[in-house]
Computed example of a mutant assay.
Amino acid sequence: MSESFLRRLFQRGKRQGSLSLEVRADGLAWSYSAVSAVSHGFLEGPPARRQALLDTLVAEHGWSGARARLILPMDQYQVFQLDRPDAIADDELADALRWKLKDLLEYSPAEAVCDVFPFPEDASRGRGELINVVAARKTLARELVKLVENAGLELERIDIAELALRNLAASLDAKSHGVALVHLRENDGQMVICRGNTLYLSRKLDVSSESLRDAAQQDGAVQSLALEIQRSLDYFESQLGQIPPRRLYLVARDNVMPLAPMLASYVAVSVETFDAGELGLKDALDSRCLPALGGNLALGGSSA
């Protein structure tokens, strides 16, 4: 985020490689990227044990002094599209727009840390120049910064889940034709649609893995998920004025169920199961680590 206490200039030469970390309610998802390999993992544990878990992880892998990127999960921040004010410098936008959120946040803007990232110019459809504004509670941000620094890591940046997933989608869209990525978690999901490095749309999907696995609920759950996906694709085309992506990549923790072909019969796009080998992973993908993996593919100029 853009405020000074969230910015730490990392010292080059301390260690090669970087750690990307998503601090979740049920544990820590991490990805470590070195010159020769990318590794990842998930440590389960309650919030009260976060520091101990991270300290142990850093000690076991010898990561002390490594630069780290924090990924905020979806439920720890909000994103709003606001009109970009005239004659405001880029580095002053976050502070200038903070108080415009007073009727949108459940807490005072004084308690928020904000940052901005671009809204695609070709998607504004005559609404003027827009900007994406990210807001999170300062108390949460400070706790996460303290967690990382107490573990002996150098905080490089804080990103958000949808931009981390954007990084993954961009890696699958080398020709910038457009691509959609759906990440299914235990109780919900997230869909992003990107073209090249640009995030056009991010939507939360109201679906649970339990309902998709349960034989009695499965047909209805698949149809409901497909309807949400297709509505997002339609919005991307009709409201944002964009050509629909050619492919949708699906990532779910339980890949035993043939969800991709089940969805493909309902949506107007090719649905494929995400191949973790494209990220250079040697181990099987733990989908809980997907945003952390995306954090290690950070793209310049567009992160929060």
Results as ranks from 00 to 15, higher is better:
L299H: 03
D206K: 14
E92R: 15
R127W: 01
T139C: 07
D286G: 03
R213S: 13
E278P: 01
M262I: 08
S124Y: 06
R50L: 10
L155T: 09
V267P: 00
P120A: 04
P245Y: 00
S18V: 10
V35D: 13
Q223V: 13
L263K: 05
A170P: 03
L130A: 06
K204S: 15
D234K: 11
G62I: 08
D234A: 14
T273D: 11
M262W: 00
T198K: 05
L281K: 04
T273Q: 11
N197H: 11
D159F: 02
P120V: 00
M257A: 07
L155S: 04
A136H: 03
F274P: 04
P118G: 03
L19P: 11
L285E: 02
G295H: 07
Q16E: 14
L184S: 00
G241S: 05
A268V: 06
A66N: 02
L54K: 02
Q81P: 09
D188T: 11
L263R: 04
E143F: 10
R8K: 10
N296W: 01
Q51A: 02
A170G: 15
E121P: 00
A151D: 03
R98K: 15
Q76F: 01
G189T: 12
V23C: 06
A123W: 04
Q78A: 15
I193L: 14
L54N: 01
L82I: 10
A135Q: 00
R127V: 02
A89E: 13
E156Y: 03
E210F: 09
N187K: 15
L201V: 13
V222H: 06
S302L: 13
T139D: 13
N132C: 04
P120Y: 00
L101N: 07
S2H: 10
S176P: 08
A226I: 01
D86T: 13
M257E: 06
N255W: 00
R12C: 04
L181Y: 00
C289K: 03
V134K: 02
L72Y: 01
L105C: 13
D173F: 08
V38N: 09
L225F: 02
S171V: 10
F42V: 01
P46C: 07
L199Q: 02
G152D: 06
A37R: 12
S209Q: 11
L165H: 06
A94V: 06
N187C: 13
S31Q: 12
A304H: 09
V38A: 13
E237Q: 14
D122H: 05
N197W: 03
E106N: 14
A180H: 04
E186N: 12
A180M: 07
E111L: 11
A292V: 09
L130N: 03
Q223K: 14
H177Q: 14
G41E: 09
I158H: 00
P120C: 00
Y200R: 14
S31R: 10
G17R: 06
D206H: 12
V148C: 03
L293M: 10
P261D: 09
A221R: 04
Q16D: 14
D254V: 03
L72D: 01
D214R: 09
L28A: 02
Q218S: 14
F80A: 07
G152F: 02
